[in-house]
Design a protein around this nucleic acid. Sequence first.
DNA 1: ACCTGAACACCGTTCAAGT
DNA 2: ACCTGAACACCGTTCAAGT
Lengths: 228, 228
Amino acid sequence: MAGRKATGSPGVTRENLADAALLLLEREGPKGLSMRKVAAEVGVQAASLYWHIRNKEELLDLASDALWEGYTPLPPGRTATADTWRDCLATASRRLRTHLLTHAGAVRVLAGRFAPGTRSPGPMEEMLALLRRAGFGPADTADAAYTLLTWVQGFVLHEAVPMSAAEEHGASPQEAAAEARERLAGLPADRYPHLVELAGELSGPGMDSRFEFGLARLLDGLEVLRGR
Amino acid sequence: MAGRKATGSPGVTRENLADAALLLLEREGPKGLSMRKVAAEVGVQAASLYWHIRNKEELLDLASDALWEGYTPLPPGRTATADTWRDCLATASRRLRTHLLTHAGAVRVLAGRFAPGTRSPGPMEEMLALLRRAGFGPADTADAAYTLLTWVQGFVLHEAVPMSAAEEHGASPQEAAAEARERLAGLPADRYPHLVELAGELSGPGMDSRFEFGLARLLDGLEVLRGR
DNA sequence: ACCTGAACACCGTTCAAGT
DNA sequence: ACCTGAACACCGTTCAAGT
């Protein structure tokens, strides 16, 4: 009985196992996730898990589904006028990043496990809807949504991994950024002149503005396509 | 003596261990990489590895360095005229994708381990050089390079993982694509109307054209910024 | 300086056996 | 239908001991 999770319905269900896996991933990192611990988390022996799931691989798939649980697309909100499609896509992208960052500890392990659309349809469906409403054709819509999702996930991956690595190492984000800068600045200047020169710009902790930069470029690019 | 790798210099060096790890990763997948197997690969006992490296974590870091070994930036080639910076960036991005796909089996494990620039400076330095030569300022150059690298890696991650998963499962790319399409088309059409409608577009095996789409948008966006 | 053997605590997974 | 105990083959890592 001890260790049964408070949230969700009580039994040993696939959902509860996924939640427990996700929780362990975020609380203790990659090494914290083992069948035995997941089992303990739901108050059962490790061998019992195999009645509900095929293997650890499947458990990770379930966990990557569970990661999207709290993500709900924006309410339709104000009606879409011609000049707000850009803002809508921007908001959706920002919310996507925020949501992934919420689960930063799990992103590294689960990255690449959620193919856009197939595994957890929510975010992809939202992007597709916004793009179609903006007037993009079917093919462009699919490609654009894929580009957006793929970029956000790549961005967050590079954002979340050092974050959780630094905090695992017991360093503050500032310390981690300073350390990164020094590593860059310490490279051989003859082989990597630009890295050395731009060490400050590259290692700054301004992830928000970096995200906004990429987002603006992507949306500008879509605007160019749309106006063609 | 049996099992010593043919390539590279013979001793048990950190480089050789990294190469062996990378090789195992690509040949046998994530489960194929263990300290004991790496040790066997270089003809030594598992415990010996700890004389050369701190732990498995460090070995993976070394392997993610080794992944970039074969990657050399384009020779300066023709002198940069004002209208070729776009082509240069496009070529660099494509080469980056190709190189990562060459190590598709290792990408999943190593993803997020190579922060752009810090770990393996080659690709980042190349991007920075091209962007500066194109006339972008320091801040924009740093942000643009980060965006490009981050997107390529996100893209390849989503491209490589299903690839290696499908082949591990013994399915052809076409079969995998067909399976993905059916999963999308089988979603509840009331909740995911666009996913169902665009199932064909989303799951097509045309990864090359999808990549070109994203690349074109990104470069268009940079062009807008540059012309401002 | 570099390697080994043996050991420790821990894995994922299976399977007969229980209820 | 669901869970357990015990077992199997395998981990990462440490450490005294060898040369």
